[in-house]
Design a protein around this nucleic acid. Sequence first.
DNA 1: TGCCTCATGTCAGCATCCTGACATATACTG
DNA 2: CAGTATATGTCAGGATGCTGACATGAGGCA
Lengths: 146, 146
Amino acid sequence: MRQVETLGELDRSMGYVLKQASAALRSAMEEVLLPLQLTMPQYACLELLSRRSGQSSAELARGAFVTRQSMNQVLRGLHDRGLLTRPAVAARGRALPTQLTPEGVARLQVASAAVVGVEQRMVASLTADDQQRLLRHLATCAHALS
Amino acid sequence: MRQVETLGELDRSMGYVLKQASAALRSAMEEVLLPLQLTMPQYACLELLSRRSGQSSAELARGAFVTRQSMNQVLRGLHDRGLLTRPAVAARGRALPTQLTPEGVARLQVASAAVVGVEQRMVASLTADDQQRLLRHLATCAHALS
DNA sequence: TGCCTCATGTCAGCATCCTGACATATACTG
DNA sequence: CAGTATATGTCAGGATGCTGACATGAGGCA
């Protein structure tokens, strides 16, 4: 494959370049998560729970950009593997608060380190200021379309 | 839903914010493409063909970040709707060069205008310089992970 | 109180995308 | 020339995610 084909106008399109970066990140993350027996949504679920414990399936779904149904399937898989706990019945309302088990925390620590490595590799050639700018601009873009 | 929940550390993660922006863009694009009877990969395919005509399914697949098989399915749908043409047999090698029909060009013009509108809305609150910076930084990130 | 709205969990069905495999056509290499 | 490697198209099967629908629980309001 040639390096950039014709270096066409696509590289001027914000949408295309954003998709390109996102696809590259996803691919790289799946690569490092595969040996850890974790898929992308599974890792996202564990990460979200580590940031704030006791979230419901619907909350996790919004945080991971999937539907409630998909997140529920993810939660079952992680529950069956003993990485998190869910009450069988809701103590209040219908939400079932989820928590990481020690095994889940341990697994996440390894995975998180690998993912951080990928992120650092992604922005390695940017200065600290540019990284902050990029972070801020991306957040602005996301907010503008919400 | 509260605005940003706890405004947690997730907003400091480059990967998360990138995914957030990408998801928002995809959602917004699907919203404007739905009335035009076009899905995301279908639009990407048409756009790629308008940039460079005669591309094979495999080339289009790489450009749209999907597999050859998925792109082949997309091409069939667009071919059945008369938006593009493919030779039944390869004139040389195995590649089947694809071209847009006038109907395909017309449909793409409308879709492209809608998508450009979405992209402009996304970066509306950024200065021209910041837009160029964002474009350049995203390309750098994508290249670093390839 | 009764009613309405909203959020959550869950089930069934469908659409989409991918992995694995195979045949074919071209280019390269000994 | 024969063998290998690479690229393309295609088929079959499975995995994943989504839409639509329903029941349940909480909160707000006349």
